[in-house]
Design a protein around this nucleic acid. Sequence first.
DNA 1: TTCCAGGGTAACG
DNA 2: CGTTACCATGGA
Length: 301
Amino acid sequence: MPGDMNKKSSIAIPEHFSLRECLGFLNRSPLERLHQVRKHAVRKLLFVNDEFVLIEVTQAGRHSLAVDFLTTANSDGVRNTCVDFVRQWFDLERDLAPFYELARNDGILAKLVEAHRGLRLIRIPNLFQAICWAIIGQQVNLHFAYVLHGRLIERFGSYLQHDGELYWAHPEPQVIAGLSVDDLRSLQLTTSKAKFILGVARRMTDGELSISRLQNAANIEMARSQLLNLYGVGPWTANYVLMRCLGYKDAFPVEDVGLHNAIRLALNLKQKPSVAEVRRFGENWTGWRAYATFYLYRSLQ
DNA sequence: TTCCAGGGTAACG
DNA sequence: CGTTACCATGGA
């Protein structure tokens, strides 16, 4: 079969979906290395079955998304895996109607869901990427987190060149597991974070930690305890990964400083709410606390 | 200059 | 059990 035919898959768009809003979130930092946002499209390099695949997601009419395969020689199986990835990435299986019903009369969320209608909780389906991003983001401002993560990716990740541009893929756990603490410290990570990330990489290479083990957890508490067993993963990181990677729509990183600031701005408070107060606000969002958090993140851009 | 940033661990009482 | 020091760096 000739390999240079531009192949394309299609995904039906659910109710309450706006590609523009999702791209707005994905485009929040110019330092992002793991996807590239264009005016009406986003490109991402995926590593599937030992091969790199560059995809581009665009809208194709009112009712469907198109997934273009910009690299050749993909099997049907690889293409289906990429389509599944996109479904998770944009959380397309979710019915947002109950969330919008809940948010409509909420003093904190009402304006946000109005302003960003159709925004999905943009997920990080790659477990190692999600945990690295969370650990790197502990206790540093978001900009610096992007700087550090960018260094990790460009030093130890892989890239594919296409039409003169570089597209990066996150380093695999196997690559990081073989490094030393000093290798990671040279990126200006703290010694602690270097150890945390090495530990996670090694748990993944020895099979003790995997996305399937987490997905097989009976409930959110069981998944959370798996994550909390990891050195360097506390309550915030565990809930963040449950939210961004595993797609638990009720995961709630209550200790999150960004969340606190977003609530302070939404309510025009003089100072940030305490963790106890944030937990109390969250009671109104039960069932959808991850979505509430994500919309509040969006308000900080 | 000081304080804060999408926290967590270890070492204290 | 609950507190506290420490971590590395950069922007406000």
